[in-house]
Amino acid sequence: MTDKNLLLAIFEDIDPAAHAVDALRGLGIHDEQVTVISGTPITEAMLGRKHQWSNVTRFSLGGAIIGFASGCFLAFATPNMYPIIVGGQPLVPVPPSIVVLFEMTMLVMLISTFLGVFLDSRYPSYTPKEYVPEISDGRIALLLDCPGDMEATITKAMTEAGAESVKRAEAQVI
């Protein structure tokens, strides 16, 4: 991080932030070099940015498969380890097995989704980060990896776009 030159531009509203994103693009700053930080969910479309990549659905799907498999194990494999007949029912009864499969699938799927969020967002992470508390007051911040020589240009462009402040981002304990 230290070798990067990070700027943090703070905007009060969505429209100036969207303008700023356009302006940055005009200045040749790649979308990848800009991170939007906000206190409310701002969709990519609002700022005209690319869709964010997320693995959460994959985790979900993977979890569902693992859950289904463990359900299969519980429902179909465990009775055979110590066969006991109860109530004249078959050793592996079909309808109750469906219940087990369903519950196990949902359980592991939801756990995986939850963990997916953690993994994708690298939670928990208590290392210092570039952040200002105003963000949770509804500000929108653009955190940009600014090539050293463009700092002044970008600062100016941001201010013109309506940034409340533009400053060097310092990683801090949040």
């Binding site: 066969p83 007949i85 004249g88 029912q89 078959p90 050793l91 009864p93 079909v94």
Partner: peptide, 12 residues
């Protein structure tokens, strides 16, 4: 034990 497959098959 002979393990039956379906409920209908099981008859002691």
């Amino acid at each position: 034990p002979k393990i039956p497959e379906f409920k209908a098959d099981w008859k002691e």
